[in-house]
Amino acid sequence: MNRPVVVGVDGSPSSLVAAEHAAHAAVLRSAPLHLVHGYLHPLGYGVPLNPYDLGVPAPSDEARQMLTRTAGELTGRWPGLVVEVREVAGGPGATLVEESRRADLVVVGSRGLGGFAGLLLGSVGTQVAAHAHCPVLVVRPDEQPIPGDRPVLVGVDGSDAARLAAGQAAAEAARRGVALLLVHVGPAEQDRALPEEEAEESDAAHRAHAARLLAEASATVRADHPDLVVREHPVRAASVPQGLVEASGTAAVLAVGTRGRGGFAGLLLGSVSQAVAQHAHCPVLVAHPYR
């Protein structure tokens, strides 16, 4: 089955930038693009409804025109792209999660209007990131134009979630024809002075641990993508988000897992995820297994 790329669109600048990235992703996958507008309040209630009217409101002409206009602009910029537009009577979070069951990728903007307000910074974004049945690409409005030759970056920490993220990042790098950069973020240098021997032992242990994790991840992705250029990059930072955000400055996409050990615990559901989603210098690919 040729799964589509799905993007939530509400006419806001954020969602339109997300739609552009979604179109690029669909072209890379030779997949159709579905523009989806969930036109009920996130809690499932239509704001314009009369409280005594138990029916579901019809799609608005304004939203339909917005979707048609967006589809026309995308097909003009991406010849050969097949675009389908759809309005769904449902909350935006639940709508995108349901659409993800049949999608290859869901793309969301980090800011929005109407039903998509606060994506990835509020309850809707958390819902999509936590419950999607396929990978989710988070795009911010200032992330244009789409870079052509930058590597795909993925955080490596030895967890199952990081392995899944590395596999999906490798596939994305192969589609784009760019290198894959494996990054392990270790602890920053100690502020207090350590005895020389103790400092050397600690540093050697860190280097050995990072090298082992990176080598394991590299061997796994090379087995599936033997022609892919893979680079290993151990870094030290005050925190995992800081290390990843700094490294993302030269990347096309930063891939992360939704669960992990150590610094990756709770990604996209807690403080680490908020920091990465808000401050990464490129789109963030949240890895999910296909269900």
Rank of each mutant, 00 (worst) to 15 (best):
L54A: 13
E216T: 12
Y39C: 09
L40D: 06
H184N: 00
R3G: 11
A204C: 11
A215H: 05
A204H: 14
L181V: 04
S30V: 13
G109W: 06
L244W: 04
R29V: 12
R64K: 15
R101H: 09
A174C: 12
H281C: 11
Q127T: 09
V124D: 05
L153D: 00
L16P: 13
G260P: 03
A31E: 10
N50I: 00
P145N: 11
H133Y: 14
T126V: 13
G115D: 11
G72Y: 09
P57H: 07
G167H: 08
V240M: 07
H225K: 11
A71K: 10
A169R: 01
A169S: 06
R236W: 12
G80R: 04
A287P: 03
E216P: 00
L43G: 13
A215Q: 05
A169I: 03
L254T: 01
A247K: 04
L182K: 00
G257A: 02
Y39D: 04
G11C: 12
A89P: 09
V136D: 01
E99H: 04
E20Y: 01
W78C: 06
A129Y: 00
P151F: 06
Q274R: 15
V7T: 13
V6P: 12
D149S: 15
F264R: 03
L194P: 13
A31K: 11
G76T: 03
Q144P: 12
A89Q: 06
R64D: 12
G11L: 12
R3D: 14
L268T: 06
P147C: 06
T258Y: 04
Q274S: 14
Y39H: 04
S60R: 15
E73Y: 09
Q242N: 14
A25R: 07
L35N: 07
